[in-house]
Design a protein around this nucleic acid. Sequence first.
RNA 1: GGAGCAGUGGCCGAGUGGUCGAAGGCAGCGGUUUUGAAAACCGCCGUACGGUUAACGCUGUACCGGGGGUUCGAAUCCCUCCUGCUCCGCCA
Length: 425
Amino acid sequence: MLDIKLIRENTEEVRAALLKRMDDVDLDGIIALDEKRRGLVERIDTSRAQRNELAKKIGKLRAQKQDSAELEAEAAALRDAITEAEQGLASAEAELRQRMDELPNMPDDRVPAGGKEANQVVRTWGEKPQLPEGAPDHVALCTKLGLVDYERGVKLGGNGSWIYTGMGAAMEWALLNFFNQEHFADGYTFMLPPHMLLDECGYTAGQFPKFRDDVYHLAVEEGERERFLLPTAETAILNVYRDELIPFEKLPIKAFAYTPCYRREAGSHRSEERGTIRGHQFNKVEMFQFVPPELAEQAFEELVGKTERLVQKLGLHYRTTLLAAKDASASMRMTNDIEVWLPSLGIYKEVSSVSWAGEYQARRASIRFKRAPKGKSEYVHTLNGSGLATSRLFPAIIEQHQQPDGSVRVPEPLQKWLGVEVLKP
RNA sequence: GGAGCAGUGGCCGAGUGGUCGAAGGCAGCGGUUUUGAAAACCGCCGUACGGUUAACGCUGUACCGGGGGUUCGAAUCCCUCCUGCUCCGCCA
């Protein structure tokens, strides 16, 4: 959510920023609603002051056993007027809230306007491996090496499901261990949150109402609270501090979590996305930071740096891109994707998205801090990044590290968990 | 799943219809005293939104788990939800 004061006072600046990711921005309607809201609040406050005054007088009269009928009638009329004004206020607030919720975050100055085509490559690391013509793809390799059982996975979970088996499961687990170990060493707090979250978590993270259809909702009994399976641990970690005032000295808070991510991915299957490239459930370690505004830029660089280092240690060729305004998610001020090279597809695939939400998420979730006990409370900045998602990394490892004899070199950091340097059929 | 109890300021805890934003204590902050410290004593000590001010402030409203209701007036009465605790049952 944006700051209504900013919209009110710097309307054109906000409009210009939003036009980078929206075709049409209606701020005037919002400003008018806000004016209406504030007018009603003022009226209600003064009426309440009068009512409180009357109630006090009535109390005194009654204590002295004097007649108060006239004042009571006056107060009753006032009460009815207040109730009516309150209803008007409630509906104005609800509409304003809805309009505000629909506004995306303002992109950073550096973020290019437009969609995917405007994304900018900021860095490339390593080189494309030289593979012979007709080299097998990850699906063929994983099947041959017995790392992933795609067919039986579908038998169990339907399309978009697979089973890591044998050394494949061991390597998946090793990747997660590797990430956890790195983040732990960097002083991040490890969290294992629930995977089933209450709907309000989805609202504060900005997934609902817009992406309601993209997540799995649990069937609930009459009167039971709605829950969904988290599509990313970001949703969980952000909500950990929802409605809290964080002591300044606890900032920055750096956390990471491992969870599977559950996504419907309705209608987005393409033939090139065979295997584990896009599934309904995949494993991810998510990094998250809550910081005061002045540390946000630095935190963003830290998260991007950490992510890149993980991919580097795995010896994979990748590139880092700055997402254009329409390609990044609406809550974010700036996003870098880390994309790993997949030889068989001839494209770079996202394995991590590092984002800086500014105070947009914190405002929605009401996560604040205070520099001094008497000071004004401010919203924290939130940042998140995958570190990393495995379902695309795995194919990249298999393909980039394949050898002419059909075996696959195990990246050095994973060897201690797998106990071997090479995966052979 | 059944039965009962509870949720008050950073913490503990009083308050069962009016003068309660809420006694008292602890912690914290400032001061007096002291060679210094402790103790003692005095004062301050919640949040949000709005008005006013150059500013210190002053001021209005709301908030006693959340939401709704009754009433001229609600921390206090009623409904509902959430959370926690105790007991019984069931299950991994």
